[in-house]
Amino acid sequence: MDILNALVAILNYVVIPATAYGAQLALGALGVTLIYGILRFSNFAHGDTMAIGTAITILFTWMLQSFGISFGPLPTALLALPLGIAATAVLVLATDRAVYRFYRVQRAAPIIFVMASVGVMFVLNGLTRLLIGVDERRFDDGTRFVINAREFREWSGLSEGLALRGTQVLTVVVAVAVVWALFWFLNRTRSGKAMRAYSDNEDLALLSGIDPERVVRLTWIIAAGLATIAGVLYGLDKSFRPFNYFQMLLPIFAAAIVGGLGNPVGAIAGGFIVAFSEVAVTYPWRKVAGYLAPDWQPAGLLQLLGTEYKFAVSFVILIVVLLFRPTGLFRGKSV
């Protein structure tokens, strides 16, 4: 019985939250890695793209709610999502036209692009604050729980409860669907293959008659979509605060680098590696230990690292990968 309790506790406090978080990171890292593969720079504005995409979606959600529209058991934000993605895509394309295209024509060094993305980050950050303010916002409606801790305890007779929130299930389902669609697009369609070709070998892609501007546009649209979806799912799961999205930049970059920058499969794996490490390292294992070894009374919480240091986990993973395998676990672009 105690082993079952321990398993349920691990499931409840580690596996479920880490899976949802991992899916959100994976979507974010996919956007970063795609931009890296095609435009060849690390986009520091990605966190704030997520933030503004989410902010726009929240505004559309409020609008729908004010019309009395809801999505039954699902959050209304899901209905607003396509509108949010479209608006973010337009914004991001405008940014490319106004900022990045100039440096592309100049064939500027990657670090100049990074610098420009810092400027874009500032602007997007300010726009988000202007749009929705700096306060924390919750915008999830619909069904709260798929499995309720109390009901689970009554049903199973265990002392440990298991809670599964609707937003967590939603996160995973949406992420799987999005990733499937993305890979189908990249591997099966002409445009998707053209994107991969461009990422592989820009000059040869030009010789083959692939239009670089079209590829770049497509990339931005997809990245805007991924960023908005990742941001909205994160916001639904936790809450929306613009600054949190800036802070997600580090785990997202870590995920993308761990998987190998430019490698989409790697980005997904990297997202889950970072998320599981982060949750596992910051989870107090005392409870689980209590079930498994009731006689042992450890003094501390058996927490390897306080939750306030969760970013240190991404950082350590990042450092280890840079030290031992700078191209990432799944072989990304060369160093």
Binding site: R190, K193, A194, R196, A197, S199, D200, N201, D203, L204, A205, L207, S208, G209, I210
Partner: peptide
């Protein structure tokens, strides 16, 4: 048709996809 001396394939794409990309236009 032009075959450059180096970097003349798409390394992460399959042989068949390389040929497909050749016929892109």
């Amino acid at each position: 048709g032009f075959v450059p001396q180096v970097h003349n394939v798409f390394p992460s794409m399959t042989v068949e996809e390389n040929l497909e990309m050749g016929a892109f236009i």
